[in-house]
């Protein structure tokens, strides 16, 4: 068999895993993990950034320290914590996919917390004063005046973090979740003949996915520039 034949014979498996006969896997599972983790990380980051802006001193300290800790440790370590410890602590069987999503969402959220906080801080004090003097509460000023402007500044941070998250879905390989990278190593072990073409194909799939995100991010930013300060 040539390399092309090996790839095309395994393409379905690389893209979908053993679905529909078995559970979803391959690139489809990577997409599910990536999308869920990106959504959760964005919500966590937004919440964290807002707490760092409006929270009580104790709460701010708590969020700042836990986010700094999460940013300082490798994703692999956090995946280990979630994968091996959650079942021990709660005496329940947590599926590998969920533990990976939890780990990725926590780390992504920690980085986005920093980005959201910095974005909010970049909006001038005059905007806050204007909002407060109009009789808005601090929360209203943040939600109606500061955050809409700050989100524009944060677009590149969010897009970069989503790209990092997409690439980090491949870490699920370490705990044996059947996403794209794991499935590729299975194909490689089974076929044994064309390791380079197999992994190059997988790299190309990830590259298309990430490059698509880069392109969307650039368009999104350009849109904000065109619309201007509306």
């Amino acid at each position: 068999m040539t390399a092309v034949e090996v790839i095309s014979a395994n393409l379905d498996y690389l893209l979908l895993g053993s679905w529909p006969a078995g559970p979803l896997g391959g690139m489809a599972l990577s997409v599910v993990i990536g999308l869920t983790a990106a959504l959760l990380a964005s919500l966590l980051g937004l919440a964290g950034g807002i707490v760092l802006t409006l929270g009580s001193p104790l709460l701010r300290r708590l969020v700042a320290v836990s986010a700094a800790l999460l940013r300082a440790i490798p994703v692999v370590m956090l995946i280990f914590w979630c994968y091996f410890l959650l079942p021990v602590l709660f005496a329940i069987d947590v599926p590998g996919t969920l533990t990976v999503i939890a780990a990725l969402a926590l780390i992504g959220g920690a980085f986005l917390t920093q980005a959201v906080h910095a974005g909010i801080a970049a909006i001038g004090a005059g905007q806050w004063q204007a909002g407060l003097s109009l009789g808005f509460s601090r929360w209203q000023t943040l939600r109606l005046i500061v955050l809409p402007q700050a989100l524009r500044i944060m677009v590149p941070s969010f897009v970069n973090q989503w790209i990092t998250l997409v690439k980090d879905t491949s870490l699920a390989y370490i705990v044996g979740v059947a996403e794209l990278t794991f499935v590729a190593s299975q194909v490689n072990n089974r076929e044994q003949v064309y390791p380079l073409p197999v992994f190059a194909t997988v790299a190309l799939l990830y590259w298309l996915w990430c490059s698509g995100l880069v392109w969307l991010g650039a368009r999104w930013e350009a849109h904000y520039v065109r619309v201007g300060h509306k």
Partner: peptide
């Protein structure tokens, strides 16, 4: 830059480890 930034490190590691060893 694009190829190295927009693909996972894990895949690049496996590519060097298995792919180059195969060559």
């Amino acid at each position: 830059l694009s190829l190295h930034r927009n693909t996972p490190l894990m895949v690049q590691l496996l590519l060097w480890y298995f792919g180059v060893a195969g060559l």
